[in-house]
C-alpha cells in the first residue's frame, strides 16, 4: 500500500489540534507529529481487526489510528477502540471528534483512573491493550506497572499489547524501567513480539531528545482464570505513583468547557478603543 503523506499529515493535523493542552503536572507530554504517524501505522498493522483498550491516551494515538483508517490511509484498522483516561478533557475531545467525523462506531472514550479497580465491563473484554504511561523515571516504573496491569486485566487470554516507554542510551533509568516492564509482562504470560527502539520524540521543552520505544507484546494461550480480581491500587503504590515522594492525589481532571461546548476560561477579551472619528 502506498502512503499519501500529505493526506496523512492533514488528517493528523486535525487530530493534533483537537488534543487538550498537556498538563506537565501529570507528566502529560505529547508525542510529536512524525512519530504519531509511524506509531499509528504500527498499531493499525498489529491491531488490525482487534478490539483495543487504551489505558490513557493523551497523545491521541487511538484517535489518530481511527481517523487515518477511516480515511483509508492505513493498511489495517482495529475493529473498535476504547480509551480510558482520568482527564475529562481527553475523554471529551475523543468523543467530540469521533461524533464530528462520524467515527463514533469505532472509538469511544470513558473516564477512569488507574487507581481504581478496572470496571467489570472492561475485564478480559478486549483483544489488545495499548498504553503510554507516565514513565516512572524516579520510581523504577511504579506508574508504568499500574497502567500495564490495568491493560492486562482488560484483555482476553489470546492477546496483544503495545507499551510505549522511555528508551534512550544516555538514560540508564529508561533501561531499568524496561527490565521492570518486561518482568511484569513475562509474569502475565506475554512475550516481546517486536521492539522498535528510540522510536518517538516528544514536546518536552527541557529535553526534546528524549525518546521512547514501542514494545509490542503477545500472549498466546487458551485458558485464563476469568474470575474478576481487579483491585484499587494500594495506598503505598499511590504514595509513590509518579516517583518517590510524588503521590497520585487527583481522581479526575475535569473539563470546564464540556468538550469545547462551553466558553474557555483561558482568554479574556479587551474592547477595541473607539474615538470620536469612528
Amino acid at each position: 500500500m502506498s502512503v499519501d503523506f500529505r493526506a496523512c499529515l492533514y488528517a493528523l493535523s486535525d487530530v493534533i489540534i483537537n488534543r487538550p493542552k498537556p498538563l506537565r503536572h501529570f507528566d502529560q507530554i505529547y508525542m510529536k507529529l512524525p512519530d504519531m504517524l509511524l506509531q499509528a501505522e504500527l498499531i493499525s498493522r498489529w491491531f488490525d481487526g482487534k478490539s483495543v483498550l487504551f489505558i490513557g491516551d493523551g497523545d491521541a494515538i487511538g484517535l489518530a489510528v481511527t481517523h487515518l483508517a477511516a480515511l483509508e490511509l492505513l493498511p489495517g484498522r482495529p475493529q473498535h477502540i476504547t480509551v480510558l483516561d482520568f482527564d475529562e478533557r481527553v475523554v471529551n475531545s475523543v468523543n467530540r471528534f469521533a461524533e464530528d467525523y462520524g467515527e463514533s462506531d469505532w472509538i469511544r472514550a470513558s473516564l477512569y483512573n488507574v487507581a481504581d479497580a478496572l470496571p467489570k465491563d472492561f475485564w478480559h473484554a478486549a483483544n489488545a491493550f495499548y498504553t503510554n504511561p507516565p514513565w516512572g523515571a524516579s520510581n523504577n516504573g511504579s506508574s508504568v506497572k499500574a497502567f500495564i496491569e490495568r491493560g492486562i486485566e482488560g484483555v482476553q487470554a489470546d492477546a496483544l499489547g503495545c507499551i510505549v516507554i522511555g528508551d534512550h542510551p544516555s538514560y540508564q533509568w529508561t533501561h531499568e524501567v524496561q527490565v521492570a516492564t518486561q518482568n511484569i509482562l513475562l509474569e502475565a504470560g506475554f512475550r516481546v513480539a517486536e521492539m522498535l527502539p528510540e522510536f518517538h520524540r516528544y514536546h518536552l521543552d527541557d529535553d526534546p531528545e528524549l525518546t521512547s520505544c514501542s514494545l509490542i507484546v503477545q500472549r498466546q494461550t487458551d485458558t485464563l482464570d476469568d474470575s474478576y480480581t481487579s483491585r484499587p491500587l494500594s495506598a503505598e503504590h499511590k504514595a509513590n505513583f509518579y516517583g518517590s515522594n510524588s503521590p497520585l492525589l487527583v481522581q479526575y481532571v475535569r473539563d470546564p468547557t464540556n468538550g469545547g461546548k462551553l466558553a474557555s476560561r483561558d482568554v479574556t477579551l479587551e474592547r477595541l478603543e473607539t474615538t470620536n472619528n469612528d
Binding site: 538514560y171 529535553d207 528524549l210
Partner: peptide, 16 residues
C-alpha cells in the same frame, strides 16, 4: 529527577 534524570548538567542547561 524527572524524565531527564541522569542527564549531564552541562548538556541539560544548554539553550533554553
Amino acid at each position: 529527577i524527572g524524565p531527564s534524570t541522569g542527564k549531564a548538567a552541562e548538556t541539560y542547561l544548554k539553550g533554553r
